[in-house]
Design a protein around this nucleic acid. Structure first.
Lengths: 335, 335
DNA sequence: CTGAAAGCGCTAACAC
DNA sequence: GTGTTAGCGCTTTCAG
């Protein structure tokens, strides 16, 4: 059984002062004077007294904990994006001495916000209603990795449209006209925006948009392979592929190796993420880097300002992705 | 300003019952009968009433949150081990509908356990005193990745001695007699045990232990490189290397590539971790897999039993690592 | 500067 | 089965 922890009363009794004085001392030592302070200093250390945060909170104090809510899609703990986000947020909070309360959103919106002072929403997919509810409850909130238009909530997102645009344009500049896009789940904002960027870059270059060149593979290795097999069987392999993630690009590389397709001579590939998983291998993958860590840092910074009342109105920040040129894209050669 | 949230009183008033009835309903709906229950069902949903967890806790209830404490060494968020642990614990808790309170231990033991019902300590390095303190406070605790002898606390660890032994023995079985060990920080239990396993395997095979073959490189790429350069300059390169982590092995592979050392013909390498970072590349790394995810799962399971009072006495579980045979170890060839 | 006292929202006896 | 009530440990007026 958990021993009764020492309380403010114990400290007060031992010091011969009232609990109010102890409370004041804990929250602002310099408000207690003379030998009372000296005594309290000593006793608090001796007893290793730590106020119960929930009691303090009930009486109106702080908990020093922020929440991070991530949508609970399948294999989330194997997703580069999710892990990188957790890492980024944890690091940003850690730097500020704040603890992290992690919640994976499920189907039933059970989240109880009473344990945190503010919440970072990492992406919002099926849990939009949850976001609405929490926003209604006036919990300080910052959404990261998604632009929020219709709710009065601050966000910091990445310009995925530009990412898709730049990746596609990069291929076009290398002479490719035959560009397949392996796209993610289009219900996910970033996947949709990357696709839009792809379309826009084609249009800009005066290239026709062909629906059959876009394969929705939902970020999945298995579906990627199916799509590749199909194109291969039908002898409809393109000269270049823009992949919605590096993990997908990896699957393409593996497939190419199996089939004896030369990279980048026979096929150019550009990924998305700059996942370190791909930074060492047969090929150095050309890709688009998203500043996920910076996004988390920025989000935490904003949230802290909101919690501390230093930011009153909604604010939206857009971060730019960047093409990382490595070895898997070459100039188009007519074969 | 955060709107006052709706409380048990609001619900009670609206339903025309006492707050005690509401409380009972929230904790055990079937204890409230007839139309009171029907009314409460409706009203709780309408108002979206959620009890404040800290108030509930203060009155003796549950928070449904477990803590995870990780020592705050440098670059922790880039460590395979730490990330894998966070992932494993988060997944195990998530499966059980419990939230995670993550704390990175700093130099000053500021952790306030009042927000959690139990704690997973992932490893214990410089925060041993913190563990002692929390154990003294009788918070339910399970330590993972470290054997705890002197405190009355349950643990689940990995048999790193066996891991080091098996890795070394594997090299010996392939005819190597000249085996360098790149060791981690020896203050970390797992690093020390792997080294002991290395020594034991040598002894078992009747090979002499030579101190100059062990390089303490502290899991660091930079120090690994320094050690390699030195061996290379002095023309003291061995026929095989046992690395304390896959990341270190990766650095060795990169170095070998630069110097034109053929893997595995000129040099055999075995790593430790089975880090997916290494599962795709020029070489398929032979390594020792640690069951980190299983360890986290087991730890959470044990903790939950302790919290629920189903386990009263200390218990220790050892998990076995396993050699994963791939392509970077070959039979020794006299050159 | 310090103490007394009134809650914060909830649970858990204890009555009825 | 349901209501009444006494706290849980802390902060915060309000006096002194």
């Amino acid at each position: 059984m958990r021993t009764k922890s020492i309380t403010i009363k114990d400290v007060a009794k031992k010091a011969g002062v009232s609990i109010a004085t102890v409370s004041r001392y804990m929250n602002n030592p310099s408000s207690v004077k003379g030998k009372n302070r000296v005594k309290l200093e000593q006793i608090v250390k001796d007893l290793n007294y730590k106020p119960l945060l929930y009691a303090r909170r009930l009486a109106g104090g702080k908990m020093n904990t922020y929440g991070l809510i991530i949508p609970g899609y399948e294999d989330i703990f194997y997703s580069f994006y999710a892990l990188e986000t957790i890492r980024g947020v944890a690091a940003a909070l850690n730097k500020r001495g704040v603890d992290l309360h992690l919640h994976i959103a499920g189907s039933k919106d059970s989240y109880n916000s009473s344990l945190v002072e503010g919440i970072i929403f990492a992406d919002v997919i099926e849990n939009m209603e949850q976001l609405r509810r929490l926003a209604r409850e006036n919990v300080p909130i910052v959404v990261i990795n998604k632009k929020i238009e219709d709710i009065d909530v601050s966000y910091v997102a990445i310009d995925n449209f530009k990412g898709g645009y730049d990746a596609t344009e990069f291929l076009i500049q290398h002479g490719h006209r035959d560009i397949v896009h392996l796209a993610g789940d289009l219900r996910v904002q970033c996947a949709m925006e990357r696709l839009e960027g792809y379309k826009a870059a084609l249009a800009k270059a005066g290239l026709p948009y062909k629906e059959e060149l876009v394969k929705i593979i939902n970020f999945s290795d298995r579906e990627t392979r199916i799509a590749l097999e199909e194109m291969f069987e039908l002898r409809k392999f393109p000269s270049s592929i823009f992949c919605c993630s590096d993990k997908v690009a990896r699957e393409v590389l593996i497939f190419a190796e199996e089939k004896g397709i030369k990279i980048p001579d026979d096929l150019s590939i550009i990924g998305f993420d700059d996942n370190q998983l791909m930074s060492y291998g047969h090929y150095m993958l050309t890709t688009v880097r998203q500043p996920l860590i910076e996004m988390a840092e920025e989000g935490v910074k904003m949230l802290m300002e909101i919690v501390n009342g230093k930011m009153k109105k909604k604010c939206g920040v857009m971060l730019k992705p960047e093409v990382i040129v490595r070895d898997t894209v070459s100039f188009y050669k007519k074969s």
